[in-house]
Design a protein around this nucleic acid. Structure first.
Lengths: 413, 413
DNA sequence: CATCCTTTATTAGGTTGGTTACGAAAGTCA
DNA sequence: TGACTTTCGTAACCAACCTAATAAAGGATG
């Protein structure tokens, strides 16, 4: 890479300072000293180093305080870029984001997940290349690619642990192959986990808070952030909220559990329920054989927004089920807030938010200690893809990776 | 205190090394260097400092390796002590443990929780004093007291957040008052959280693993340990597994939620079910008006062990319900193991363990990544009290408390 | 059994990432 | 204008590690 070696020294402190600057958008050295507990002298030097790398620039004066005014510093968003690639059941979304996590380019296409990975990944790589070219992003400034997908996975190996979307993807080295095709580091992670950290990075919640995220696309996933980092657990397959049981007398799920949330509140369940509701299927022109049930789900959400009582009833019931999961999440993880992210919250997010907040207020065990707020996504439908890109930014910049090897991206070639 | 100032320098590293020595029982300097990633030189000096404080002693030679034999070091268990006080609904358990976490004295008594705290706490303090005296423990070597209780609490303030056991306990400064009475630092924490860290300290699981604990006494609680530390969440009221819903159509619980695990699988629920089972109540001489339902529960467990089919059926059903909670815990926290601790597992623990393991094997979502083992407690009925004492040891010795103030015990007077 | 080799433990000195102390710069206030 | 306040950089120092050399305690070997 042509860019200077970023982590010449004290990676941890530099990462912390950079993260604070990012979270605050503009901040002064004095405030950085207060936030980190370091002295002004150290902050001065760290900021100088960050400015030397071009990651940070000065941005005018702060409010007058009676003495020398504080100089503001802020991120130089154009200094680095990162790519997020989301593989969903039917679609693939690719985004390019700048250092601040803001989207600078986006594309999406269908069909790729049905192909075997040998065919799909070069296609994805070509799309990434094209996107970087049309967005005129200097490739030397691209830190890497965050590849996100659903289901259990082995993050270190960069491999999926279930035969989804098709059998051919099981155990295929997706991260390594994409890295080879692109000549960029690739980091594999769970879509919900990515969305969770993406919401943090772009300011959905107070950066100091412990919060959870419920991510709903085709399925339902989740994530939790503690002290600015994802809760990982033993193998990074944590917060699998779509397959917790909300009904011990419920139906068997292919995952092995019974009464899984996803089969009550997920988009496919809602479409199923809508098809079984007299009149609703005809009114919304739902297609009982459509494999891409997300578009059917979107129509139900739109009808609910427009005032269709049956559609609204179904959605509110789904929200109540999600409310139970949110309460479980709050009771187990003791979070300050729960973010609702992902495409399936995009259509009728306000209905979901209101109902889930109500359930959480009524049912959360630790509500005596503090309220749990339910907040909407800031990243909308592309939360997972943006989150994938953010994971790379965080891994390369703010975590100052003297962590385990598992957090490192697969290096290119 | 007459003991030397323990944390003269590098508290973090000293804490880490001390924790490794504790976990290994005996270990060599070379192994410590490998485990910490530090060099032999640094380990040498840290170990010398620990020996200077009397916390660690050399203990013979290791196996010959062809060169100079490694010298073994181990904890000096008699160097420090710690007290654990558990306030349950009906009983109070007090234990004194040594530096290795082994119990050196124990007492228990009834009735104290029914008194107002103004009356109860001096009584507890007197019992602690008596126990230390009879066990001939040098008071200068007592690091502090871990006070554990159930329900939501404000750890920093040392205050309970629910009117339990009686209204008088709500918001009463229990930690501060006990500290004043005893002249020792007091740390307040949740019983289940304490039990969880106690199992870790005494070796129930691999110290490197991420694991959860289900603690069952009168109620059901839980804890999770990541990288040797309790998962705390936002306000330390985490892993409240007794009040997660396992049935969205279940009955209302006073906590606000419906279908709470505790009302299906907890001891009081089991006694209720037993009373409703024809013949069983008479056979076991259960008393429908007994407020101390734990003794009734123990009789059901004993009958199940002895082969009574009705009792065994009830217990297995309870275990299956707990299995659902264990699966939820595993799916959300992605743990390697789940420990079953507390008095209510003491009677028929093997039945519980077998059934819960079976459920976890069948139903855990991430089982493709790794199996989740269900393991019995090493601390038995007194897990919470021992855990309370261990919390003090950990806070004072191995965490090297440059953490937030909330982790510090309330200092004496 | 004296010598050599291997491995462990300690000592000496260097590097890193912080600290405190102080002074220069850049404003406000009287 | 001059006194005062506050910010920011420099210099000197310190804690916690590191590397390299050395001492100590065995086993293997001629």
């Amino acid at each position: 890479m042509a860019t200077s070696p970023i982590w010449a020294s004290r990676p941890k402190t530099r990462g912390r300072v950079l993260d604070l600057i990012r979270a605050a958008r503009t901040i002064t050295r004095i405030e950085l000293a207060e936030a980190t507990g370091l002295t002004g002298a150290t902050i001065s030097e760290v900021v100088r180093e960050l400015m030397g790398d071009g990651l940070v620039v000065e941005a005018g004066r702060g409010a007058p305080t009676g003495g020398k005014p504080r100089t503001l510093v802020q991120l130089n968003p154009l200094a680095r870029y990162s790519v997020g690639v989301q593989l969903e059941r039917n679609t693939c979304v690719i985004v390019v984001v700048d250092l601040a996590g803001r989207q600078v380019a986006r594309t999406s296409f269908h069909g790729v997940a049905q192909m075997p990975p040998q065919q799909a990944l070069p296609l994805v790589a070509a799309q990434v290349d094209a996107l970087l070219t049309t967005a005129a992003v200097d490739r030397d400034k691209v830190l890497g690619v965050g590849l996100v997908s659903y289901g259990p996975q082995d993050r270190r190996a960069g491999v999926l642990l279930t035969p989804q979307p098709t059998d051919a993807w099981l155990d295929y080295p997706v991260a390594r192959r994409l890295a080879e095709s692109l000549g960029l580091p690739v980091l594999l992670d769970n879509d919900a986990a990515a969305a969770t950290i993406g919401e943090y990075w772009l300011g959905a919640v107070d950066p100091r808070s412990t919060y959870g995220c419920i991510y709903m696309a085709s399925g339902i996933g989740g994530g939790v952030v503690v002290a600015g980092e994802l809760y990982r657990g033993s193998s990074s397959n944590s917060v699998e909220i779509g397959h917790i049981s909300i009904d011990v007398n419920g139906e068997q799920c292919p995952c092995g559990n019974v009464g899984c949330l996803e089969n009550y509140a997920g988009p496919s369940a809602l479409v199923r329920q809508a098809l079984a509701t007299p009149g609703l299927a005809q009114r919304l022109a739902l297609n009982p054989t459509d494999a891409d049930f997300l578009s059917e789900f979107a129509r139900i959400g739109a009808a609910a927004n427009a005032g269709d009582p049956a559609a609204r009833g179904l959605l509110e019931q789904s929200a109540r089920y999600l409310g139970f999961a949110a309460v479980t999440m709050a009771s187990l993880f003791d979070v300050d807030a729960i973010v609702l992210a992902g495409p399936s919250f995009a259509v009728a997010g306000s209905i979901y938010q209101a109902v889930i907040q109500q359930e959480v207020d009524r049912r959360t065990f630790a509500r005596r200690a503090h309220r749990v707020r339910v907040v909407p996504s800031v990243n909308g439908s592309d939360a997972a893809a943006i989150g994938g890109a953010v994971l790379v930014l965080q891994s390369e910049l703010t975590l100052g990776h003297p962590r385990q090897e598992d957090a490192r991206p697969v290096p290119a070639s």
